[in-house]
Every structure is written in structure tokens, then in C-alpha cells.
Design a protein around this nucleic acid. Structure first.
Lengths: 123, 123
DNA sequence: CAGCATCCACAAGGATACTG
DNA sequence: CAGTATCCTTGTGGATGCTG
């Protein structure tokens, strides 16, 4: 997910698929779910999510801000303070994503069972 | 999305996040949505989705099969015939993913507007 | 603190050729 | 037809160093 919203093959893809990918991307999901609870400062969010490089968090936040999902509030103070929160649109997205994430979590043992079956029938 | 379910950094990730990524992956989404309507043969599905490399489709199908979302029915005939369909678990996943996709599609003009605003306030 | 710019390694993913 | 195997290009994303 690039700053200018580039993804492999992005050019020939219908626009909504692009937004879908932003929202369901690796860090997109986590950012949305985190911000659904409350607003976060940059490095606060970084710690909350864990193991995100600064670069990826920045890119993710910018992409989601550009898509109108995230609101960025930069306070003109020193040292800089920037708060991130969800827009109403982002809030809807977050709810959907969280639903999917929760569903996945709750179905994990079914998945695990399926994997065992799959694996034991081949080398 | 690799055959053995590898993703960058997969090792240090909680397992459910991995499944979530399979389901929301580029081709995963499209496969699930397509198979929700009806079952497909391999190359039928390839045409339906469009611009998937054979390799990616194979990988995606195998991963989703291993996760217990997709059922693979290989008929022992010549020429080979393989039908793919959704399992009950896959059906649930597909419904969620489709909901999210539909939501995204319907919100596209809000996103578009947000982008214009975002873009016009910077070089 | 909150970023941006750069470099770099590795993995995703496409193209091609081949097989059961 | 439905894949597998291989090569090769591209992009993703981490690490580092610098700035307002």
C-alpha cells in the first residue's frame, strides 16, 4: 500500500477493489480496529499495534486518511503532537472489519481441524 | 499467499491474522465471492476473475482449501475435470467478505470526494 | 515527536515450459 | 484440462539517517 495508493497492478483494477485492499490490508485492519476504540497518537498507535515499522504505519495512515477513513489532527505545538481518529466512514469500515476479524478468531479451531485433515492426506 | 501459507513475517503473527489475510487477500476475496454464486471449474474460474495468473489462482485455491473454506472435487476423467465450491465455513466467510465488498462499492463516491479534498490541499 | 528520504533484501507474483 | 516447476521482474516493507 503505497502513499499514492499504488498496489501491484493497481492501474487495471476497478477503484473499489483498491479501497477494499486498503481497508483489508495487513496494517489497515489493525489500524481501523485500534482506532475504533479510541483515538491514538502516532507512536502510541505504533506501540499498540506492535511490530509495525514507522514507514508502514505512516503509509497506512496516509492512505486511509486520503480515503476518508481516518482523521488526522496535527496540533501546532512543540514537540509535535498528532492525533488520529476515525471519521464516520472509517467507523463503518472498522465495524465491518472487526466483525470479520472476530468471526475468523472464533472459527480458528475449525480451520485448524481442516488443516490437519488436509495435511495428513499428503506428504 | 504461498502454498504453505507463508506471508512476510508470518512466523511471528497470531494464527487468526493469517487466516484473515488469506480470506481478504487480493485473489482470496474474488475467489470467495465468485464461488458464493456457484461452483466453478479451474479455468472457468480463471476467466471469471480475469487477470489472475494460473499460479496465483492455484495457490489461492490451495490455501483456502487447506483452511477449510473451499472444497475441491477432482473427477477421475480424461481430460481432468476439477470443480471448486465453498464449504459451509467458506460460505460464511464469503458472505462476510461480500458484505464488506458491497459496502465499499456503495461508499465509493464518499471515498472519491475525500480524495479530492485530500489531494487539493497538497502539491 | 512525527514524520520524510533513501537504500536494500526478500518475497509476491507473472511468464513460460512442461507433465499426468 | 488442471495443474507443477522454473525463472525472473516487481513491489513490499524493514532499517537507517535526517528534518521541522
Amino acid at each position: 500500500m503505497g502513499v499514492s495508493s499504488r498496489v501491484a497492478g493497481a492501474e487495471e483494477m476497478c477503484p473499489y477493489r483498491l479501497v477494499l485492499e486498503h481497508v483489508t490490508s495487513r496494517w489497515g485492519v489493525l489500524v481501523l480496529i485500534a482506532l475504533e476504540e479510541r483515538s491514538y497518537r502516532f507512536s502510541e498507535l505504533r506501540r499498540e499495534i506492535g511490530r509495525v515499522s514507522e514507514k508502514m504505519l505512516t503509509q497506512t495512515l496516509q492512505t486511509l486518511e486520503r480515503d476518508g477513513m481516518v482523521h488526522r489532527d496535527a496540533k501546532p505545538v512543540i514537540p509535535p503532537r498528532v492525533d488520529y481518529s476515525l471519521t464516520p466512514l472509517g467507523r463503518e469500515a472498522a465495524a465491518q472489519v472487526r466483525t470479520l476479524a472476530t468471526w475468523t478468531e472464533r472459527r480458528m479451531d475449525e480451520v485448524a481441524q481442516a488443516r490437519v485433515k488436509y495435511d495428513e492426506t499428503r506428504p
